[in-house]
Measured scan of single mutants.
Amino acid sequence: MIVFVRFNSSHGFPVEVDSDTSIFQLKEVVAKRQGVPADQLRVIFAGKELRNDWTVQNCDLDQQSIVHIVQRPWRKGQEMNATGGDDPRNAAGGCEREPQSLTRVDLSSSVLPGDSVGLAVILHTDSRKDSPPAGSPAGRSIYNSFYVYCKGPCQRVQPGKLRVQCSTCRQATLTLTQGPSCWDDVLIPNRMSGECQSPHCPGTSAEFFFKCGAHPTSDKETSVALHLIATNSRNITCITCTDVRSPVLVFQCNSRHVICLDCFHLYCVTRLNDRQFVHDPQLGYSLPCVAGCPNSLIKELHHFRILGEEQYNRYQQYGAEECVLQMGGVLCPRPGCGAGLLPEPDQRKVTCEGGNGLGCGFAFCRECKEAYHEGECSAVFEASGTTTQAYRVDERAAEQARWEAASKETIKKTTKPCPRCHVPVEKNGGCMHMKCPQPQCRLEWCWNCGCEWNRVCMGDHWFDV
């Protein structure tokens, strides 16, 4: 396979590697080409510095992935760790964990309700045991953590790749202090920090972006993250068709209702045909949960890209028209025109101005929308079919299609509260000796007794199943 190397943020060049090629071997190839010592090179990928003893497969490097290699003399205490030698983080029983690669970060837990604080980093599902597709590297999971809308060759929703760059020099040479644990960490600028490894760059702020994971991409090709779309790892039924499908869209209502993408497309087109989208002054033209839940309008309007190009163009047109109407304007009634106009409040005669090729020149009556006339309008008909009709959803289907309910059931079956801080902690095999993952707590306690870890627990039921 081919990976592209950008040395000291210059133009990239291809390097041929195998899945079992080590990072140090990659350094040696680059060092020979650039005429520099291999031990002064640092390989940066997806916000993480890659260790010498890791392989291309370990690092989730795919065909035509772009890695950054910078030349920086080692500072005291760094060289041993980078070589894969006596790194205290690798000691058996050590409590410190390697910062998780962005290629394996899962933010789907952050669609849980606000009262489930902490689960994004504490609760991990076991539903990723799908067998890898044919042709994928051994052991590589097909679980997708992110979804994007690819405006490039795909023109559809695709699995996405999370990447990070330095907000100062805009190069992907920043190593994160810690990985993101929720969508806010990724979507809110300057929320996460790190250290830029580019020479002479003092940058410390992280800037995240997404790429389409279905095809090789260049540095400049980015895609918009659709953070309401998630892999259906909890096997929730769709609120409309009641099938279990994946991926799904999880509405931001209190129940976190789930809808499959085909039904979401149908829901949007139906509402669009009836012009029953909601115009929100802050958000724009949007839709609420299909069950009509309060405070559930979709905030990231790129989710409506699921409509496809033709329907999305209609959505944008109707949204612009609705904006004009909300501002007190009118639409030209001549067939084939429909231009938005903003006449004076007491102006009865409205002319669709033909300047700049935008208007048709038609003069019409503001009251009856017919060709302009003197005197009273002959008839004014009330528009028919403008009443909002509820999208029919079966109550039982709505009850079963809740992301929140599956989460709470998982928590109930696989977790116990920490005796000190009461945060839910998952036990997935292993011994009875637990350690609270909350940095402010870190209590060592017994899963069996529910009390602080002691010699009695150690001698009596340390390794009970």
Score class of each variant (00 low, 15 high):
residue 207 E to H: 06
residue 268 C to P: 00
residue 190 N to Q: 09
residue 42 R to Y: 04
residue 295 N to K: 09
residue 278 V to I: 12
residue 90 N to P: 13
residue 228 L to C: 08
residue 259 I to H: 00
residue 219 D to M: 08
residue 59 C to W: 02
residue 442 R to K: 14
residue 128 R to K: 14
residue 56 V to W: 04
residue 33 R to W: 04
residue 57 Q to F: 06
residue 221 E to A: 06
residue 12 G to W: 03
residue 257 H to T: 00
residue 405 A to F: 11
residue 373 H to K: 03
residue 398 A to M: 15
residue 243 D to H: 13
residue 220 K to S: 11
residue 142 I to D: 12
residue 225 A to G: 08
residue 420 R to N: 15
residue 28 E to F: 02
residue 166 C to R: 00
residue 451 C to L: 15
residue 48 K to I: 03
residue 271 R to T: 07
residue 106 D to T: 08
residue 384 S to R: 10
residue 259 I to N: 01
residue 304 F to A: 02
residue 202 P to A: 12
residue 72 R to Y: 14
residue 96 E to T: 10
residue 225 A to V: 10
residue 39 D to Y: 04
residue 162 L to R: 00
residue 37 P to A: 10
residue 303 H to I: 09
residue 383 A to Y: 12
residue 187 L to I: 08
residue 325 L to N: 04
residue 310 E to Q: 09
residue 464 D to W: 03
residue 4 F to M: 09
residue 147 Y to L: 03
residue 91 A to L: 12
residue 396 R to Y: 12
residue 112 L to P: 13
residue 172 A to V: 06
residue 459 G to R: 15
residue 327 M to Q: 14
residue 2 I to H: 14
residue 449 C to M: 00
residue 252 Q to F: 03
residue 288 P to Y: 05
residue 290 V to T: 07
residue 333 P to H: 03
residue 191 R to G: 05
residue 440 Q to K: 15
residue 456 V to M: 15
residue 264 F to S: 01
residue 432 M to S: 06
residue 366 R to I: 10
residue 157 V to W: 12
residue 58 N to K: 13
residue 2 I to G: 06
residue 83 T to Y: 14
residue 426 E to G: 09
residue 21 T to Y: 06
residue 187 L to T: 07
residue 109 S to H: 12
residue 76 K to P: 15
residue 423 V to K: 15
residue 364 F to G: 03
residue 7 F to M: 06
residue 130 D to G: 10
residue 360 C to A: 03
residue 294 P to W: 04
residue 271 R to S: 14
residue 292 G to C: 05
residue 401 A to F: 02
residue 255 S to N: 10
residue 244 V to E: 04
residue 360 C to E: 03
residue 103 T to F: 07
residue 418 C to T: 01
residue 44 I to S: 03
residue 278 V to M: 10
residue 417 P to L: 08
residue 223 S to F: 06
residue 289 C to A: 00
residue 232 N to L: 00
residue 335 P to Y: 11
residue 207 E to I: 05
residue 67 V to N: 00
residue 56 V to D: 00
residue 424 P to C: 06
residue 255 S to Q: 11
residue 59 C to T: 07
residue 24 F to E: 10
residue 321 E to W: 05
residue 231 T to K: 11
residue 395 E to Q: 13
residue 264 F to L: 04
residue 65 S to N: 06
residue 162 L to T: 01
residue 106 D to Q: 09
residue 450 G to D: 04
residue 126 D to W: 05
residue 127 S to W: 08
residue 253 C to A: 01
residue 363 A to F: 09
residue 175 T to G: 07
residue 374 E to L: 08
residue 251 F to C: 01
residue 341 L to N: 14
residue 425 V to L: 10
residue 361 G to D: 06
residue 189 P to M: 05
residue 107 L to S: 15
residue 166 C to A: 01
residue 118 G to D: 14
residue 158 Q to A: 10
residue 420 R to Q: 14
residue 420 R to S: 15
residue 367 E to V: 11
residue 340 G to T: 06
residue 335 P to A: 10
residue 407 S to T: 13
residue 292 G to Y: 04
residue 131 S to W: 10
residue 463 F to M: 04
residue 461 H to R: 01
residue 243 D to I: 08
residue 159 P to H: 08
residue 45 F to H: 13
residue 419 P to N: 03
residue 55 T to E: 04
residue 387 T to V: 12
residue 71 Q to V: 05
residue 29 V to D: 05
residue 442 R to I: 05
residue 282 Q to L: 11
residue 36 V to Y: 04
residue 45 F to N: 06
residue 452 E to D: 15
residue 429 G to C: 14
residue 25 Q to E: 15
residue 124 H to K: 14
residue 313 N to D: 07
residue 242 T to K: 12
residue 70 V to I: 12
residue 390 A to H: 13
residue 85 G to T: 13
residue 57 Q to N: 09
residue 100 Q to D: 13
residue 161 K to A: 09
residue 240 T to S: 15
residue 144 N to P: 10
residue 209 F to T: 14
residue 196 C to H: 01
residue 409 E to W: 09
residue 169 C to S: 00
residue 65 S to I: 03
residue 135 G to W: 09
residue 9 S to E: 05
residue 261 L to M: 08
residue 231 T to W: 06
residue 100 Q to P: 11
residue 288 P to I: 04
residue 448 N to M: 04
residue 459 G to A: 15
residue 404 E to G: 08
residue 94 G to V: 12
residue 292 G to K: 06
residue 18 D to I: 04
residue 55 T to W: 02
residue 22 S to T: 14
residue 24 F to G: 11
residue 140 R to N: 11
residue 152 G to H: 14
residue 147 Y to F: 12
residue 391 Y to L: 05
residue 179 G to A: 12
residue 329 G to L: 03
residue 68 H to G: 00
residue 86 D to V: 11
residue 145 S to W: 02
residue 90 N to M: 14
residue 98 E to C: 07
residue 271 R to P: 00
residue 219 D to H: 09
residue 463 F to S: 00
residue 396 R to Q: 11
residue 311 Q to S: 05
residue 244 V to C: 04
residue 85 G to V: 11
residue 170 R to M: 08
residue 66 I to N: 03
residue 101 S to T: 10
residue 380 V to F: 08
residue 348 R to E: 05
residue 69 I to T: 01
residue 297 L to E: 05
residue 200 H to F: 10
residue 258 V to W: 02
residue 252 Q to M: 07
residue 190 N to F: 08
residue 265 H to W: 11
residue 290 V to L: 06
residue 268 C to Q: 01
residue 108 S to C: 10
residue 90 N to E: 13
residue 441 C to L: 00
residue 29 V to A: 12
residue 91 A to M: 10
residue 138 A to P: 12
residue 450 G to A: 14
residue 218 S to M: 08
residue 199 P to V: 06
residue 336 G to S: 08
residue 274 D to V: 04
residue 119 L to R: 15
residue 76 K to Y: 13
residue 111 V to K: 13
residue 36 V to W: 02
residue 133 P to Y: 10
residue 223 S to K: 03
residue 378 S to I: 12
residue 238 C to T: 01
residue 451 C to N: 15
residue 175 T to S: 14
residue 408 K to H: 10
residue 51 R to A: 11
residue 314 R to A: 03
residue 164 V to L: 10
residue 402 R to W: 03
residue 92 A to K: 13
residue 388 T to Y: 11
residue 383 A to N: 10
residue 160 G to P: 01
residue 143 Y to M: 13
residue 142 I to V: 10
residue 246 S to E: 06
